[in-house]
Computed example of a mutant assay.
Amino acid sequence: MTSPGRRARMPAPDDDHIGSRIREQRRLARLTQRELADRIPYSLSLLSQVECGARPATPGFVTAVAHALRVDSSKLTGPPAVTALPADRLLTLVAPIREALDRYDLGPNPGLADVRPVPDLVTEADALCRQVRATHLRAAGKALPRLILELTHTVYTASATPVWQALASAYRTAHDVAVKLDHPDLARVALDRMGWAAGRASDPCLEAVQRYKRATLWRCATSAPLITSGQALLAGETSREALAVTGQLHLGLATVAAKDEDRAAVETHLAAARELADRVGGEAGDVHWLSFGRANVRLHELGTSIVLRDFDEALGRARGLKLPASTLTSQRARYLVDRALVEMEAGSARTSLAYLAEARKVAPEQTRHLPGTRTTIRGLVHMSRRAPDGLGGMARWIGV
């Protein structure tokens, strides 16, 4: 575990002011303070004081620095940019999903032509889940609205459990796309619809998954009761499906406990998940696309260590973790970003940057939106007097 006296390399939450952003952009430009001061009509002393937050940055100072660094002044004055697709492309992708979700209670859609047979709709719902796990977010997002409209029409004209289950799955995919594109409001709407469909499918595993997903969007105080209510739905169930979902719920509770800094509860839930992973056997990637299994448990062990800021322990776990070939692309990308973060904490800047570059190559859309990516890049900037080769391009890619 990290020793009590060790200072984390990640920037502190309150270390976000104009001066700190000037320092970030200066380092990304690979300039020393002296070199930047030579390019502006202000003293090195003033620049140093502004960067550390001891002096305010006047509008004239900001304009001069922005000109010297060849960046827009909003890079220095505004809040950190939200990583996302360009606004017009994002709207084109998200708006049709939102409109399809809004039709849930309007009954049959007489204007919908060429509705596919139920087996084809069920197959596509599963295929879109697979696309999201492969981090093909835009492809899945483009196909989702039509699928949701067809399934919504079909549950009113040919209601059956498989159709309700497929509709719940499509809603869950809408949630996953919305989360990965940083649209939590849309993700909550999608989960409400998922709960509506799962209840009508009378499928306790689907309902439990829905509560698990809801918990990931809420504060810890609300998350734990949601997850435990999902476990209650599966009490006494011994099917492989129920065991896998229950194990994933324990992993969710371990993450909640880590955020609450309850180390005993973290280990309790991880131990329960390990035992269930042994009972399930192998990686249950076919169970609601949760991919519950031994590898997923190890990924959560790494994740909880990071949340608890036990970076020495996290580094050991990251370096000792060998993911099976069957690991989903989305999980592999998250591991690579986590590995980059703990390597940065260990002071291995180039190794950290290499893992970020690999994550970008494996799953560019997901990597761009993972919070750990921004945290790692900002940490690398703060720990380096001059940005390593490649860091500037990576920072521009996510909007730093």
Results as ranks from 00 to 15, higher is better:
residue 185 D to C: 01
residue 65 V to E: 10
residue 270 L to I: 11
residue 62 V to P: 06
residue 106 L to S: 13
residue 33 Q to V: 09
residue 194 M to C: 12
residue 369 H to P: 00
residue 274 R to L: 04
residue 191 L to S: 04
residue 182 D to Q: 10
residue 221 A to H: 06
residue 351 T to P: 05
residue 173 T to R: 03
residue 335 Y to I: 02
residue 352 S to K: 01
residue 305 S to H: 14
residue 378 R to T: 07
residue 275 E to V: 12
residue 224 A to S: 15
residue 31 L to Q: 13
residue 179 V to Q: 07
residue 88 D to G: 01
residue 311 F to E: 01
residue 99 E to L: 12
residue 67 H to I: 03
residue 300 H to Y: 09
residue 94 V to S: 03
residue 73 S to E: 15
residue 168 A to F: 05
residue 7 R to E: 14
residue 52 C to G: 03
residue 60 G to D: 07
residue 397 W to C: 07
residue 54 A to S: 15
residue 155 V to F: 04
residue 318 A to N: 08
residue 115 V to N: 03
residue 396 R to N: 07
residue 283 E to C: 07
residue 385 R to I: 02
residue 375 T to R: 14
residue 325 A to T: 15
residue 305 S to A: 13
residue 139 A to F: 04
residue 336 L to V: 09
residue 271 A to C: 06
residue 355 Y to I: 00
residue 232 A to K: 10
residue 69 L to P: 03
residue 166 A to C: 12
residue 253 L to I: 07
residue 377 I to F: 01
residue 75 K to I: 07
residue 96 P to H: 09
residue 115 V to R: 03
residue 288 H to M: 08
residue 220 C to I: 12
residue 154 T to M: 11
residue 319 R to A: 12
residue 92 T to M: 09
residue 210 Q to S: 14
residue 263 R to Y: 05
residue 325 A to M: 08
residue 49 Q to P: 00
residue 136 H to G: 12
residue 397 W to R: 08
residue 182 D to T: 08
residue 27 R to W: 02
residue 378 R to K: 09
residue 334 R to W: 09
residue 248 Q to Y: 12
residue 298 R to M: 04
residue 171 Y to A: 14
residue 59 P to Y: 05
residue 158 A to W: 01
residue 282 G to D: 09
residue 353 L to K: 09
residue 278 D to I: 10
residue 152 T to P: 02
residue 346 A to R: 06
residue 198 A to R: 03
residue 229 S to K: 08
residue 91 L to T: 15
residue 158 A to Q: 13
residue 338 D to H: 11
residue 179 V to E: 07
residue 83 T to W: 12
residue 134 A to M: 07
residue 23 R to M: 13
residue 309 R to N: 08
residue 352 S to Q: 04
residue 279 R to Y: 05
residue 330 S to E: 13
residue 167 L to T: 04
residue 258 A to E: 02
residue 253 L to A: 02
residue 388 P to S: 05
residue 92 T to R: 14
residue 333 A to K: 00
residue 294 R to E: 13
residue 189 V to Y: 02
residue 195 G to I: 05
residue 156 Y to T: 08
residue 45 S to H: 09
residue 124 E to P: 05
residue 108 P to R: 00
residue 135 T to R: 03
residue 240 R to G: 07
residue 310 D to I: 01
residue 394 M to Y: 06
residue 234 L to A: 05
residue 128 L to S: 05
residue 160 A to L: 11
residue 169 S to P: 00
residue 125 A to Q: 02
residue 73 S to D: 14
residue 33 Q to L: 11
residue 54 A to D: 14
residue 75 K to T: 11
residue 77 T to R: 12
residue 236 G to N: 02
residue 118 V to K: 08
residue 288 H to D: 01
residue 345 E to V: 12
residue 252 G to F: 03
residue 260 D to T: 06
residue 177 V to K: 08
residue 292 F to Y: 10
residue 210 Q to A: 15
residue 233 L to V: 10
residue 304 T to A: 11
residue 50 V to M: 10
residue 168 A to G: 15
residue 290 L to F: 03
residue 374 R to W: 04
residue 236 G to T: 03
residue 285 G to L: 06
residue 47 L to G: 02
residue 398 I to M: 05
residue 119 P to D: 09
residue 400 V to Q: 10
